[in-house]
Write a protein that binds this DNA or RNA. Structure first.
Lengths: 202, 202
DNA sequence: ACCAACCCGTACAGCACTGTTTGGGTTATA
DNA sequence: TATAACCCAAACAGTGCTGTACGGGTTGGT
């Protein structure tokens, strides 16, 4: 789409990059950050921002896309094969961090972007977890009495929970992953089976 | 405080009541609802609203207080003694519903009210859960390898999770409580012990 | 039946944000 | 080095919200 304009100049690309980065950071802290704030954080005039993005929605979309890309990229380096319990632990270790920053950004996106676009962006990461969960269920280590979508949502909720606790000063970043996995592995254990002891594969 | 004015007239009290009720409902659906919307929903002129509440913050505070009061009242009717597992199940059954509506309201409150006031309002309900959890830990049915504050937060997160699933159309209200308790009771089980089968005391 | 308290609509001032325009200075690229 | 692309600050219109001020109608309490 949009092959009308000739190639952008180098400084223009630099500006755009700075804006998208600043947008991801600002909106990650405060979903209602104004375009003025974002432009200032990017070290760029507000008008320049409008020269590259037609509307606030476009800025949010770009920031969201960037965050999702980074997330996918980081998760590609994670080994999701082998014991589902360990795979899930590795997944948590690598992503709880990202999920936190993405949350506020998601709030901004939900107000500015059509729901379809949101699902589209969210589908990639979601698929990974579902794969792990499905394999774990097939192997009998994860419960089958609750829908997969529910389990996925619980996982994300617990990650958000950790972010809250950190912000409240009741939890340190180092312990977060451990708490999350301990909680989630227990929550996913099939009824009647013992919950796994933590620290099996550290 | 405020013993200067003579008693309010009956219609004034009726208006105030309608405003607070409408505020709780509107802000419960959309934390950014304007005072115009709230006044309209209350069947009252916008100016009348300002005659009773000096600022938006006062309206939010009143709505929040109302919701908390109602919640406490509903929870007073719940028996929290006996088997901690069953007590927790009863608690969930009675309150997941309230927590949902209170969430958006809380978002509004966090933007308008000082943090101290928020903690003050939240302390009542939180204490209940902590009591159940502490007793369950003492009796060995809840895990002690994670802090109580964490467990409380997990419980709330899972409740929010249920609200999300319902809004997304992937869960019905009837099954919500069951899913929540099944998840949370498993998450709270001490490592090495079997997770309880659901439906023990239905 | 009276009067104050209350309600209402309209209107105004102030603020913050979005999006656009203008005009002049700077820099990449050929 | 020329020129088109780019950057910027200042300024404008438009919108939506908050909070206040008025004047005329309605209603509750005594």
């Amino acid at each position: 789409m949009g092959s009308k304009s000739t190639v952008k100049r180098a400084d223009a690309l630099r500006s755009i990059e700075a804006i998208v980065k600043a947008a991801a950071e600002c909106l990650g802290q405060n979903p209602e950050a104004s375009l003025s704030e974002i432009a200032r954080a990017a070290g760029v005039g507000r008008v320049t921002l409008y020269a590259h993005f037609a509307s606030r929605a476009e800025v949010v979309d770009a920031a969201m896309s960037r965050a999702v890309d980074r997330g996918n990229q980081a998760l590609d380096a994670v080994d999701l094969a082998g014991d589902p319990l360990l795979a899930l632990a590795r997944y948590v270790e690598a992503s709880w961090h990202l999920v936190d920053q993405a949350r506020a950004l998601l709030v901004a996106a939900q107000k500015e972007l059509p729901p379809g676009r949101i699902r589209e962006l969210h589908s990639g990461p979601a698929a990974r977890v579902e794969t792990i969960l499905a394999r774990g269920r097939a192997e009998g280590v994860f419960r089958t009495d609750l829908p997969i979508a529910w389990l996925v949502n619980v996982l994300h909720s617990v990650m958000h929970s950790a972010a809250d606790e950190i912000r409240a000063g009741r939890l340190t970043s180092e312990r977060a992953a451990g708490h999350i996995t301990a909680t989630v592995l227990a929550a996913f254990t099939p009824p009647g089976r013992p919950v796994p002891e933590p620290g099996a594969g550290t």
